[in-house]
Nucleic acid binder design. Structure first.
Lengths: 203, 203, 203, 203
DNA sequence: GGCTAACCGAGACGGTACGTCGGGTCTTTAC
DNA sequence: GTAAAGACCCGACGTACCGTCTCGGTTAGCC
């Protein structure tokens, strides 16, 4: 039973123009300064067309996020068998990007958007790859016994990302080396391979 | 030799009224909806008096934060000798507060403010006590060899706080138990006391 | 071939409310005290709607003037064949009106408006009827040879009106009798009818 | 019994600086744009010093007017025995001055001031010399029987000045020749010398 | 020589209004 | 029925001045 109605259908052209304008303006101008009128103007679209399909500028940003319009994230974290090294290799360029004005401002904007729109927060870490990419690598590390069984991989990924957010919010510049060290600490002591099942038995 | 200037002096009454109104309105209405006009109205003050002394609403919030106008933080984390237990005891009420509408909204507001005003971000963790209180307890734990020497206590505190922020931004409700487990994991495996000087040297 | 534009059209309701509020407020409060915000408030209209169509409060007053919103001027100056008497009959109530607080203040306001907005000055005398009404009667007088041929009727009307303005600006109260006498003098000596063509040629 | 009190006396320096600044600013910026704060700033004076001695900016302008700070009026209207020619000679440069931007704007400003401050209106014509100078010349003309006895000389002078004001308010530029013609008409027909006592007896 | 008062500059204060921007809704015309 | 254009009411922006009020400092003139 397909739903059908008369009249023209949602304009894909308009949708694309709107989301594209949103992403561009957010990056260029920041969350404050991002306005519906500005988006409509840049997209060559009526305001009503935006309001018809999205409830707020937060919703627009959330959809941009889902569409991956902000980062072209490296789709994988390498797996050389050395978890700590892999994470360093993956994190280092991310941290450097976040030390550029663009990177800082983009993260600021996305965090600001997240405070107003639940949908942005819910997908923020995914957009950075911290969700799937990082967690997957951690899961592999557990399987490979580089991390103890029972490690809360998803949460650990979020903690790393949370630390990153806080670092950006609270300092003028991320101390890359210190941050990498912190991540290393959070993973716990580098030990001999964990026994398959038994919990770590202190001597 | 102090610098002299004749003429009237800054009104302490106005300052207090403005900061107090700012704190109240931020808690009650949230960061968006917080307006200079609203603050002026609530404080019974001219707008110019605000602009004369603060450059933005972000600066106002930052000063409120420094004045500790948002939380009456428990001034200590207990020290029973059991770090994990002490942290649980300290964190639990904080987490529950952040699960109330007021708590959630306040953290959202402060994070939003931090994205616009560096000063807010710089003092956010202090306001929550995550800086001094938490780090001090961690330092004591290092001294008591509950944590390995060389633990980056300050950063660890920030990581915990960052994880907390991210949890609030990305979920509708904090899973208190899971978060406490995460913190426990971040502290590393519960081990016998660390040797005084030598770091654990895995083979 | 009219120029087309899609979209909504100027609201006649808003226009009427704005001009009506302007006229009322100008009469009641005076030129200073007349504010765009006050007009918008009284008209139940957004400020932007005013700024969209008028450039200043002067322009608003000018339009009110053109619409004849300040005076319901007696549409004719009587013509009994006696110019001086007709002018007295027409001027007397005007002068008395200008001796009331309302009349004085209205003329003050219009003159003040004229100093800021050329359009007000250009139509001031019309609004008082000094332009068409008075000049027409003078023209008739020239035709009837009550005034010499070549009398600059338009300018004479303006001079009478100018004298009136100056009287109101410079004195607390118009001396009605003296003003009427002045007008009589300005018309020149009451003479026998002027010869049709030849100007009076004194020896 | 003189009233006396201790303490310093009104500062002549401040008075001069304030009036001078007022005159300069009025000429340069116009009545609107003339502000107490601006005057205080330009005069290097506290606002209170202005408010202590004058009740409004209108009062300041009135005092400037009395001090003759706006025009250096030709102190006499010539008397060649030919009234019409003398008036032309005196009026022509005045009219040309009022056709300059400065002149126009100054008259506009003074008229605007007059609408707010009775004192300005009361002395406006004096400042232009229309009062004493013009009326004196007219009086002399009556004495010389160039004008009929009983001519309301003061009022006639005001009428000329009023016509001038209206001309400036209502047109972009004064038509000098037409204005001079008007004045000539207002003086009445050029006749043989009036008989000393008898009213003009038409043939 | 001190005291007292009024003067002065400076400028903070509670306000009102400015002219602009953007929000979200509604209306009109065109496709 | 969707879309562009944009007018509408509204609320906030940050600024300019208002007129009042403290300040600290500086003169008079009288005890």
């Amino acid at each position: 039973m397909t739903e059908h109605r008369s009249g023209p259908v949602r304009s894909a052209v308009a949708r694309e123009a709107i989301l594209s304008a949103t992403a561009t303006l957010l990056v260029d101008e920041g969350w404050d300064h991002l306005t519906i009128e500005g988006i409509a103007r840049a997209a060559g679209v009526g305001k009503q067309t935006i309001y018809r399909w999205w409830s707020s500028k937060g919703a627009l940003v959330a959809e941009c996020l889902l569409d991956g319009r902000f980062f072209a994230v490296e789709p994988v974290v390498g797996d050389t068998g050395d978890l700590r090294r892999d994470l360093r290799d993956w994190l280092t360029p991310v941290l450097h990007f976040l030390n550029t004005p663009t990177g800082r401002s983009l993260l600021h904007s996305l965090v600001a958007a997240a405070t107003e729109e639940a949908g942005v927060g819910a997908h923020l870490s995914e957009a950075f790859g911290a969700d799937r990419l990082l967690a997957d690598r951690l899961r592999a590390a557990v399987a490979a016994r580089e991390l103890p069984p029972g490690t809360p991989v998803d949460q650990l990924g979020h903690a790393v990302f949370g630390a990153l957010i806080f670092e950006v919010l609270s300092k003028d510049e991320i101390d890359v080396a210190a941050f990498l060290d912190l991540v290393e600490f959070l993973l716990g002591p580098r030990t001999a391979l964990f026994a398959p099942a038994a919990p770590p038995a202190p001597a």
